[in-house]
Simulated assay, not measured.
Amino acid sequence: MKTTALCAMALLAAGCARQPDQIAATPVATDRYLQMSCAELLASRTGRQTAQVRLEQAQHEAAEHDKAAMSVIHVPVASMTGQDREDEVARGKGELVAVDATIQSKGCG
């Protein structure tokens, strides 16, 4: 019985939202950025950085909610209610890497 409870808790914990700094960037091809001018790339990066900050704040809140819920009711509520934005955070990080790589390859300031 004790082993079953521990296994169930481990499975639930595995479903918890992760902190943004624990999420790796999803690889994104730079192809669609190659045709952009430096001004467009820099504007794109600024917009993406702003969006990424918002996404990471939401992800941090989801991770904190899951952490609190797990300590009280042993259920990752934020993850179960669709508040986990891990995929979006990873994609956003990947987009920023792709934009930055293109900016660097084009020698934009």
Results as ranks from 00 to 15, higher is better:
Cys7Asn: 15
Met9Arg: 07
Asp100Trp: 01
Gln57Ala: 13
His74Phe: 10
Met9Trp: 15
Ala98Tyr: 00
Ala68Glu: 13
Lys67Trp: 03
Ile23Ala: 05
Thr81Lys: 15
Met36Asn: 02
Ala90Val: 00
Arg85Thr: 06
Val75Ala: 07
Ala5Arg: 11
Ala68Asp: 15
Val77Phe: 11
Gln83Ile: 04
Gly92Phe: 02
Glu64Tyr: 05
Ser105Val: 03
Glu86Ile: 03
Met70Lys: 12
Ile73Leu: 13
Ala58Arg: 05
Ala14Gly: 15
Glu95Asn: 06
Gly82Leu: 11
Gln52Tyr: 02
Thr81Pro: 04
Arg45Met: 10
Ala43Lys: 09
Cys108Asp: 07
Leu34Trp: 03
Leu96Gly: 00
Val28Asp: 01
Glu61Val: 11
Pro76Met: 10
Ala43Ile: 09
Leu41Cys: 11
Gly15Asn: 10
Thr30Ala: 08
Gln35Ile: 10
Gln49Glu: 00
Asp87Cys: 04
Val53Tyr: 02
Ala5Tyr: 11
Ala101Met: 10
Pro20Arg: 01
Gly92Lys: 01
Gly47Phe: 09
Gly15Phe: 08
Glu88Ala: 07
Ile103Pro: 09
Glu56Asp: 05
Val89Gln: 00
Val97Tyr: 00
Pro27Gly: 11
Gln19Tyr: 08
Lys106Asp: 08
Ala78Asn: 13
Val28Pro: 12
Ala90Asp: 03
Ala90Trp: 00
Val97Thr: 01
Val77Asp: 05
Ala8Met: 14
Leu96Phe: 00
Glu95Thr: 09
Gly94Met: 10
Gln22His: 06
Ala29Gly: 13
Glu56Ser: 02
Ala13Asn: 05
Ala78Arg: 10
Val89Asp: 00
Gln35Val: 06
His74Lys: 13
Gln59Glu: 03
Ala39Lys: 10
Pro27Met: 09
Tyr33Val: 13
Gly15Thr: 06
